[in-house]
Design a binder for these strands. Structure first.
Lengths: 225, 225
DNA sequence: AGTCAAATAGTTTTCGAAAACTCTGCGATC
DNA sequence: GATCGCAGAGTTTTCGAAAACTATTTGACT
């Protein structure tokens, strides 16, 4: 009985959902910008209904806002929300890491080490515009942080932490470029890695919290100099 | 310029969303049961598209699962998930309470006291079936716990805690009726209230965590009488 | 000129049907 | 007798158009 496991034929709605989501997270759709159906139908080559379903999902997730009869927009960003988000991440993302360190198996350790290895060897800055991070690095960075959390055996906490991380991505994209070159980001990542695979929960959590806060602080302080 | 503020004319999708959500949370739709479009169209008197949008939102929220081409079902419950959910609530709901106690204003205190007052005077057990809680009590209970959290000024944390509470509602409905009459639930609620309005954060959080765990323990231990 | 109201244009929301797919039951084949 | 494949029935998915609504422009009136 070869039950030909379903070759994952994603529905059109799922594809549009992923595409719009990626466009928002990658900054191709600016916060607050309208998501008119006419344009989206043109862009994604599908009917209005499909678009609506995708946008409803994104709205439930908080990446998109909807006002009855006025359509959908990319969610706005605000300083207050960034502060809330940062506090929430420092509590919940750190919590997920704690669970990962307590319950993660050897496979998890391996994946974290691998993700870090990859991150370490990816050029941090965009050669074309050295004030910005390179796309490759942003990707590797996200995957490293996700790998850290993925050892968390509590799916509820893991899902929450992942969602918060995604939201933070928006702010990373839409805040002023960081000129915080004094900061040794690579060193921070290595320190977190060492503490995590060394199962030093207290230290790893403290390092991660500091790491998260430092980025927000850099975004919030005006570019003085 | 009397801008006649919009009298909240909820769209059909929003109404169906609320209705299905309420049906799931109230236990009128059993976990794992199919959500066929034919039936839902009949029940809610609207087109398939409207139903689909509502179900997509519920799916994103985790109250409903969807398999491509196989339709939607009410999410399944499991022991592992109940344990995860309980741990997550003990961490995150308690976190929200901590924020509420730290930042909640006098209005919050008032609403908590009011909600508790109402809960205290609502008959706990259903007169018709004294083994089950009365609907009124379940409602008042939920509103009291929500009021406790509502003082949390961090919207990200508050939203997360609220979502976890909603999920827990499912388990409360679908687990064996509690015969744990030894437990002084009213006393627990009063103790939490006193600690919260007394701004004794440590004590309030500990009490809430114990309160949450006790319910789960009662659900998980077999009814050994 | 300025203001208000009606008509117009553009969007969102909802619907019903066509297309695509899965499941069930029957019959032929080994 | 059991298994496989095929036809029919039932569902889900997608679409295009009609209905409902909002925003904008135009034109008349003070």
């Amino acid at each position: 009985m070869t039950t030909q496991l379903p070759i994952e034929a994603p529905s059109r709605t799922a594809r549009v959902y992923e595409a719009v989501r990626a466009d928002i997270l990658a900054g191709r759709l600016a916060p607050g910008s309208r998501l008119g159906f006419a344009g989206l139908v043109e862009t994604y080559k599908c009917s209005i209904g499909v678009i609506r379903e995708a946008l409803q999902r994104l709205a439930e997730q908080g990446l998109v806002t909807s006002a009855p009869k006025l359509g959908f927009r990319v969610v706005e960003i605000s300083e207050k929300d960034l502060v809330d988000l940062t506090d929430a991440r420092c509590e919940i993302e750190v919590l997920a890491l704690k669970y990962a360190i307590a319950g993660g198996d050897l496979g998890w350790e391996g994946r974290v080490v691998a993700a870090h290895h990859r991150l370490e060897r990816t050029p941090q800055y965009d050669p074309a515009d050295p004030a910005r991070f390179s796309d490759d690095w942003v990707l590797a960075h996200g995957e490293y942080h996700q790998a850290l959390l993925d050892g968390c055996t509590n799916n509820r906490i893991l899902a929450t932490a992942t969602m918060l991380r995604d939201s933070a991505e928006l702010y990373r994209r839409w805040s002023a470029p960081l000129h915080d070159r004094d900061r040794d980001i690579a060193g921070e990542h290595r320190a977190i890695l060492d503490a995590a695979v060394g199962r030093d929960s207290g230290r790893a959590c403290e390092l991660l919290c500091t790491h998260i806060r430092r980025t927000t602080d850099a975004l919030l302080t005006p570019p003085s100099s």
